[in-house]
Write a protein that binds this DNA or RNA. Structure first.
Lengths: 116, 116
DNA sequence: ATCATTTTTAGACAAGCTTCTAATCAGGGG
DNA sequence: CCCCTGATTAGAAGCTTGTCTAAAAATGAT
């Protein structure tokens, strides 16, 4: 939370990141930096109602249920998604602020980032 | 390159990513998803003149020169930075379009992404 | 040519990640 | 109460990654 001097370039190309900030952001990025998890994020986020049951997700992959469960846990631990059990099924939702935070890192200062 | 229907949410939360797109984006993200490489990116991008010599970068870390060189290679292979040798020194620059591409993934459709 | 400096390559080792199978937890019916 | 389905946890195998030391390549100076 430092300079907001001019509108020039993405924060990441703007001033040196502190080691602490870099470590914290790397955790978020590492969670996102996997083909399966990117697809899970996009499937959850674009699902009608904004949430998806694990059973909706598993079939799209050639992976076992425990593997999908593992990837969901990685995303949840990083704070990119959250889960809720309703009866037999567990539903996952995107955490919008986490996504926004990633976007802000690479995007040239737009006022739209915190919107809606 | 599909829908541009409404301004709602980040592309990643908008529609399911194809396996191919996910794989390609994961390569970019994986390169960025490391504390050392995030700091390297930010140090290069924020350096006066838009480029930094390897010698400017090494001292900020408790790492050996070969390790820094390795991380720079990962970033360059992914297309996030490019290098040029001038005399004794090698200079690194950010590739803005690659950064923009990452930002666009997580940002809710702003017209500023392709600017400047 | 020899040497010093800057950067990269090569190879090795420890740590971490992705995936699996097997077993366990949680809820809902017969 | 027992079983069935949905989901997670536990533990293991194989591959990838981050870091190091040692050596090489590239350039400029003596």
């Amino acid at each position: 939370m430092t300079a907001a001097t001019g509108r020039c370039c993405a924060p990441i190309t703007r001033e040196p990141l502190s080691p602490d900030d870099a470590a914290e952001l790397a955790v978020l990025l590492k969670a996102a930096a996997d083909p399966v998890r990117l697809r899970l994020l996009s499937m959850i986020g674009s699902h009608p109602g904004g949430e998806a049951c694990v059973c909706d997700l598993t079939d799209a992959f050639d992976l076992t249920a425990p593997t999908i469960s593992h990837h969901l846990k990685v995303l949840r631990t990083a704070g990119l998604i959250e889960s809720e059990r309703r009866g037999t099924w567990v539903y996952y939702r995107i955490v919008p602020t986490a996504i926004t935070r990633l976007g802000a890192l690479f995007t040239p200062l737009t006022p739209a980032t915190a919107a809606s």
